[in-house]
Amino acid sequence: MGAKRKLLKGYRGGLLGSPLKWLIANIVAWTIGVLWVLPFIGIFMTSIRPFSEVVSGWWSVSPFTPTLKNYVDALFNPMFSLLRGFMNSFIIAVPSTIIPVMLAALAAYAFARFSFPIKNYLFVTMLFLMAAPQQMTIIPIFFMLNNMRLLNTYLGLILIHSSWGIPWITFFLRNYFSMLPKELEEIARVDGATNRQIFFKIVLPISLPGIISASVLQFAWVWNDFFFALMLIFDPNKMVITQMLPRLKGQYQIDWGLLSSGSVLAMIVPLIVYIIFNKYYMGGFRGWAMKK
């Protein structure tokens, strides 16, 4: 009959074939995993050492002199203080998360549970808006905000981010609400609750995981956004952190010391959000991309 193989520790049988193939597959998978994070390790290694030590590669570890100088330089940069940018990013991202999630939750519930004329048209419109490029809206927005005296203000950028977030959050929460058991709402209706009461007293509390997912992802995306900020904010004191980064590059010679610490600072917040809220983040991410 068949060839006898050596059994390996941890092997469970399955798709990858014999124990040896399985072992090779494990090695390949982990090698890929490590290769994938190398740039992250590189930028971090560069950020915590004097630039002179890494000029011929961040992987050379002797000498290795850990220092926070790059971070201090970036945070208190005289032109573009990343500390300022860090705070501005928070000032923009927090309301730009709360406002659209609140508004979109209402709209999503209407799409999930109500029947009304032109519902399908409105929903398809939302889907199309989800896919629209930011470039398609920015010129009129620029001049509108200018007319409204909201150009170069936090409020202007918050309004744009909020509006831009509504379509995808509506889509995501509509799917989420549709999958809730209807019985709870039906009982509440039998008990005489109005639509509004049902939404706020029943639906919203049991949808907390979905709301958190949407909020986490919206927050990360607003934090990560570059284009809207680039177009709508010019005052260095109001710039968000992603917007400051390219400006730290320098004219002729790239200062990787400064840029590496800046990069770490800019990505640390979404990374922390991703790690802490992993379940919600991934739930939101899959819900954004897929129907179910």
Partner: peptide, 28 residues
């Protein structure tokens, strides 16, 4: 699945023996 301990014999062939580290793939 592979047992933690013990062995399975089909016909006259040992298809898995956790103690001896012998394993025959499902296909075989």
């Amino acid at each position: 699945e592979v047992p933690t301990k013990g062995r399975v014999i089909i016909g006259d062939e040992v298809v898995v023996d956790a103690n001896e580290g012998i394993y025959v793939e499902p296909r075989d």
